[in-house]
Design a protein around this nucleic acid. Structure first.
Length: 120
DNA sequence: GCGCCCGTCGCGG
DNA sequence: CCGCGACGGGCGC
């Protein structure tokens, strides 16, 4: 179920049921191209929810093959976690895809894909 | 119900 | 570069 509503002067999409929100998150994550990343926050803004919830959804993602959740990182460029497999594994996956990390292990600004842009 | 958990963010110092 | 408060909703008791 999807609900469109007015929040202040903004129109946002809401998913009253947590499971539906997760499904929407998974769909968006699949749009991230190989070799690029996006942040929990950007997905959250697009769906009208909070970054923490997006993270929770991803942490429960079982279909690691179809949903590349390793391409979702902190808005600061830090990698964030990767469930039971650990951040090290996440780092390796990104390296395999050619994502550059700086000296402090952060993703550079130009590796971020704009989901909004991808959707138009 | 309440408290605690979570793979966050953005602002202020 | 921290520290901190707010964020939404599931889950166990």
């Amino acid at each position: 179920m999807l609900v469109i509503e007015k929040r202040g002067d903004r129109i946002v999409a809401r998913f009253p049921k947590y499971r539906d929100l997760c499904l929407a998150v998974y769909v968006l994550v699949q749009l991230i191209p190989l070799g690029r990343v996006t942040s929990y926050g950007e997905i959250a803004r697009l769906l009208g929810t909070s970054p923490r919830l997006v993270a929770k959804c991803l942490s429960e993602n079982k279909d690691l093959v179809v949903v590349p959740c390793h391409r979702v990182v902190y808005s600061t460029g830090d990698l964030g976690g990767y469930g039971g497999l650990g951040p090290e594994f996440k780092k390796k996956l990104l390296a395999l895809e050619g994502v550059e990390l700086d000296g402090r292990g952060r993703v550079s600004r130009n590796s971020f894909a704009s989901l909004k842009w991808l959707l138009e």
